[in-house]
Design a protein around this nucleic acid. Structure first.
Lengths: 168, 168
DNA sequence: AATAAGTTTCAATAATTACTGAAACTTTAA
DNA sequence: TTAAAGTTTCAGTAATTATTGAAACTTATT
């Protein structure tokens, strides 16, 4: 396999993987591209390489910056902005985990908290079952979120450390 | 909050959460509905409750069965099929984790394996950087997948056990 | 302060993905 | 063996989500 072929396949696979996990294709692809680029790229470069429009590039670069996994860089004497991906795969994964917890898991926990304590006087089988399941789910999601935090809070080599601890 | 209101909010939140994680809204909602139902439901019941078409109900129920988290039930003397969700939240989470690993993570690992060993003679800075990053990603995704397996393979109370082990 | 180069925004449009509903198929029972 | 009840499939359509491209805005240069 030739470099360009390998690169294209990587960009496309990473994009597809992104979609499956609720991140849009272009965003995942831009991130992948920045990750494998030795130098930071301008918006122009990104547009060219991925064949996407200016608007698309701009919006998704902004999205990546919001996630905290891409940075702007200013080159001395140059007017245009350059973009650079966080180079550390561990820190990348940590940021994504923290951010998804904040954006999706914690709001879900809040809804479950609200919903599980509905009208206490309703004693129908449906109501009782509902109470039970939402309680169970609430406990579970809470625990999962706690676990994620613990895993991610090991400052270095968190994956390796976690695997070690789970070895027994 | 009244029961019906709580139920509606739960179904709708669970559906939205599903979308964010790459599971379609209806599938997530059907699953939520079956989970909180004291009795198993017919396709008719599901259609009625969620106001969806027969085709939609049929396809998504099939999808849930493929995931191994919903079962068919046959009631004696009754012709129609009933559907029932796995009642154990732990086992549900375990099945989803295993299935996603199989469907998404493992294929990604295979692509990374293929891609990281492209044309050995190309020594351009781009090629070298590419090789390095894809190697790093490969290692990382592999480790993450291994960790997931270890967590999920603790037969009972896996989340609790894992949190305990990470306490130190 | 006018012009040009660079950057961002967002309404319109395209692409994707989900859903419907009717037709085909299957099973049961008379 | 036929008809009625139940179930599945899938082409067409709707709904959602992503992308474009042109206009507005910002910054730098003369």
């Amino acid at each position: 396999m030739e470099f360009n072929e390998a690169k294209a396949q990587f960009l496309q696979t990473w994009g597809a993987l992104g979609s499956q996990w609720g991140i849009n294709k272009t965003m995942a692809q831009i991130h992948a591209l920045l990750m494998i680029s030795p130098d930071s790229l301008s918006m122009e470069d990104v547009m060219e390489e991925l064949q996407i429009s200016r608007g698309n590039a701009s919006m998704n670069l902004r999205g990546l910056i919001d996630w905290g996994i891409v940075y702007k860089e200013y080159k001395p004497g140059e007017r245009r902005e350059y973009f650079k991906a966080d180079q550390d795969v561990d820190s990348l994964a940590r940021k994504i985990a923290v951010e998804r917890s904040k954006r999706e898991i914690k709001p879900a926990i809040r809804v479950l908290e609200g919903v599980k304590n509905f009208d206490e006087t309703d004693k129908s089988p449906e109501a009782l079952k509902f109470k039970m399941k939402t309680q169970e789910l609430h406990d579970f999601v809470n625990k999962a979120d706690t676990m994620l935090e613990k895993i991610v809070n090991q400052k270095e080599n968190w994956i390796t450390k976690t695997i070690m601890k789970l070895m027994t």
